[in-house]
């Protein structure tokens, strides 16, 4: 695939290694159509409002380099989609996540090709684990209440109960590797319970995140529930951490001074910050990565008191 693309390429991109000569095209051959990889915001594929772009490491594709304004647009879309998403029944959200797994299975070859091009070591295993991850979270949507909700035997004539509710809009900085499994593994615990999110994709393989975006767009996940940005982590993470519409921040593999700066910015509106350092192979530990604690990071608990008497 890579071979063919190169051969048929007739464009020179700024920033690419300068190529003196281009292979002469086969006069009776067919020229492949190249795709413009765009951001996924509010269910639509959009170029960065900044007009900037970056090139994939394999130099096969250009992709949009999101700006601060794109972050804001994405949060706006996530905010707009959140009540509707949370308002669906847990069963329906479960079916939609399962549908995502079905769609991913259908795009298995495309995902493997993209991951391979993006430098994944075992793309097939990663895609399989990713699909299974979505299936596992499909089963979580309607079960967190049974495990985190309580009836409270209060002293007095009241019927009390505490129930989990989504925190709202979450901003997530996904891990670089595994580019797909890490992304889906980070997205699922956030959206399963009714949150919506803005996620900044792997810098090492942003294209696969956009193949995922196409899977999301053709699954039943409503537009705006998952918004995927590509671009520079150093540039964008702070805007995600600062945004007042964001209620929780989910940071992967960010450490040291950078982590401290983001956590400081998060204090502005008391964001809940989850920050984990996880080596790539740890994402294959399904038990750990589908843990209830991963879901509860993005939940509030609401306690209700109701009188019980005449």
């Amino acid at each position: 695939m890579a071979e063919k693309r190169k051969k048929n390429s007739d464009r020179r991109r700024p920033g690419a290694d300068y190529v003196e000569t281009v292979d002469a095209p086969d006069p009776v051959g067919r020229l492949s159509v190249k795709k413009t990889w765009k951001l996924y915001i509010g269910g639509a594929f959009v170029r960065s409002e900044s007009g900037r772009y970056l090139q994939t490491a394999d130099k096969q594709d250009n992709y949009a380099r999101a700006s601060r304004k794109d972050v804001r647009d994405a949060v706006k879309a996530a905010v707009a989609a959140q009540p509707g998403w949370a308002g669906r029944t847990a069963y329906n959200r479960g079916q939609i996540l399962y549908r995502l797994a079905e769609v991913l299975e259908g795009r298995r070859d495309e995902l493997i090709a993209s991951l391979t091009l993006g430098g994944a070591s075992d793309a097939a295993a990663e895609v399989d684990a990713t699909i299974d991850r979505a299936v596992s979270y499909a089963g979580w949507t309607d079960k967190v209440h049974a495990l985190l909700g309580t009836h409270n035997p209060v002293s007095g004539p009241h019927f009390g109960f505490s129930i989990p509710e989504p925190v709202g809009v979450v901003a997530c900085v996904a891990p670089d590797r595994p580019a797909l499994l890490g992304l889906v593994g980070a997205i699922c615990p956030i959206i399963a319970t009714g949150n919506t999110l803005v996620v900044l994709a792997s810098e090492l393989d942003p294209r696969t995140a956009l193949v995922l975006a196409e899977s999301l767009a053709t699954s039943d996940v409503p537009g705006g529930v998952v918004n995927i940005l590509t671009g520079s982590r150093d540039e964008l993470a702070e805007h995600m951490a600062k945004h007042q519409g964001v209620r929780a921040l989910d940071l992967w593999n960010i450490d040291g001074e950078a982590a401290k700066q983001l956590e400081l910015l998060a204090t502005e509106n008391v964001k809940r910050v989850t920050r984990r350092l996880q080596p790539a192979e740890a994402w294959y530990d399904a038990d750990e990565c589908t843990s209830l604690t991963w879901l509860s990071s993005f939940l509030e608990i609401k306690t209700v008191w109701h009188p019980m008497g005449a």
Binding site: Y91, G94, G139, D142, A286, T290
Partner: peptide
């Protein structure tokens, strides 16, 4: 269908039950 769907989701989560 809902009963099968719901219970399917418990299969890998029984340790939480």
């Amino acid at each position: 269908a809902a009963h099968f769907f719901y219970n399917a989701g418990w299969a890998d989560k029984l340790s939480y039950a």
